[in-house]
Amino acid sequence: MSKTRTSAPSTHAWTTATGPTRAEFGLLRARWIGRRLELAGYGRYTDRAEAHPGGTRVWLTLHHRASSRRVSLRGTPQRLGDNPDETPQPRHCHDRSGFTALIDPIRLATDGQWLQGDWELQASLFAGLRGALPGRLRGQGAAAHLGPGPNGAETWLPARWIDRDVRLQPGFLKGRLQLTLEQVHARLTVAHQADDGIHLSGFAPSCPEGTVMRLRHCQSSTVTMLPVRFVRSWKTTFAARLPYQAFTAGGAAERGGVGPEYWETELLRPDGSVEPLTLDERGGPVAGGYPLPGSATRALHLTHLGDGRLRICLQPAAAHEFPTCRAQASHHVPLHP
């Protein structure tokens, strides 16, 4: 049997004695179930129906881009839903071409160490003596159920904390699912309001004395430096204060404007390297809105854009919550530092 691959990103083909055989793959749903990520989709031949029920099998492979590490997952066959809009309609009957698979994050570690970086998801369709056709899972209905993501990602699932300082972030980039496993070096765990500003505290073991908090105003690129105090113990904790005047002087609130303003935050080490601040709400909510003293119409909000990185927003006080923040908090695994 001679095999000829096509260059199509989600449809792949062989040439056999009976003519071309093509396969296509699609991802319809991705969601967290406890500590594991559930995927649901389909893998099928486009030029013929299934030979018999359960005759095709989908295998998934997670490929770590920075190494040769691969993790194989066998899909569990499922019937596709009855909703005609759930998946593109093929020429042939493929009611049994669906699958589900569970990704356990523990499999992304080797020799007790997490393999950080990006993991790319690939798929293969197996059917008896025909062998296997490789391909990529592209988001179909899944993209409609997820919010927009940061850093160029089209859609972004809430991250999961899988260890004390380790998160797993699924996202769709160019329609393809990838998992980003990262070690978080600066976690914000507590925020409360006081007369002189909003007080923040958390853990930053990799930041030495002399580290400051840098705020960058997204609309004007103005940079503000705030002092950070460290307490060294078996866990390195930090504390910082967000003074109200840092967000009102010369801004829309002082000019009487009503449009929201945004600041990005990070910790700046003495050597010039930076560490983003990540919200860690496993011990309780951190994101939320705080009324601005002296203003009945403006509030200061701690929020993020789906990636968990702390953003500060000054906006009308009526918007007390961000939907993104509520979704993020509800998806955290109950682990504690």
Rank of each mutant, 00 (worst) to 15 (best):
E261R: 02
S220A: 05
P88W: 02
D85Y: 11
A239R: 14
L181Q: 06
V333Y: 11
D271Q: 03
T87G: 07
G128S: 11
L181H: 04
H192A: 14
V71H: 14
L62C: 01
A127L: 08
L133K: 09
V274D: 10
T15M: 09
G147A: 08
V286F: 06
E86F: 11
R167T: 11
P316R: 01
Q113S: 12
D271F: 07
L60K: 05
G135P: 05
Q113N: 15
G251K: 08
G81I: 02
I312V: 02
L305K: 14
V71P: 04
Y42V: 02
T297S: 11
T265M: 03
H92G: 09
L102W: 08
R36E: 13
L181I: 13
L115I: 09
G259F: 10
H185W: 13
R48D: 03
R96Q: 12
T46R: 11
H332L: 07
S206T: 15
A296R: 14
A246C: 05
T16Y: 10
P208R: 03
P90Y: 08
A49G: 02
R74A: 15
P148R: 00
L108P: 07
D280P: 11
R309W: 08
L215K: 00
A143I: 09
G202D: 05
L115K: 06
I106N: 15
D85S: 08
T237E: 14
L168R: 13
H63W: 12
G26M: 01
L102D: 10
A159R: 05
G259I: 05
F238S: 08
Q78Y: 11
T56M: 05
A30G: 02
L177M: 00
G250A: 04
P337M: 10
W156D: 04
T237W: 09
F322N: 10
S330W: 01
I312W: 07
I312H: 08
H64Q: 05
G308N: 04
A30E: 00
G256Q: 00
L300C: 15
V212M: 12
T324N: 07
G251Q: 03
G43C: 11
A249D: 06
L302K: 04
P243E: 03
L277H: 05
L200I: 04
A253H: 04
A17T: 15
I103C: 12
R241S: 09
R216I: 06
A109N: 09
L179V: 07
A194M: 15
G81Y: 04
P148H: 01
V223I: 13
L146W: 05
V58Y: 06
G175H: 02
P84L: 01
T224D: 07
K3E: 11
V258I: 10
K174V: 09
E38G: 00
I312A: 02
S10L: 11
T211R: 02
Q245D: 14
Q116E: 15
V286K: 08
L102P: 09
L292N: 03
H94G: 13
R269I: 04
L177V: 00
G141S: 03
M213V: 08
W32A: 03
G81P: 01
V231P: 07
P260F: 04
F172G: 01
T100V: 10
L129E: 12
T222C: 08
G272E: 02
R309N: 06
V184F: 07
D195G: 14
C313Y: 05
R136E: 13
A23L: 00
L39Q: 00
L62F: 06
E86R: 14
S7F: 14
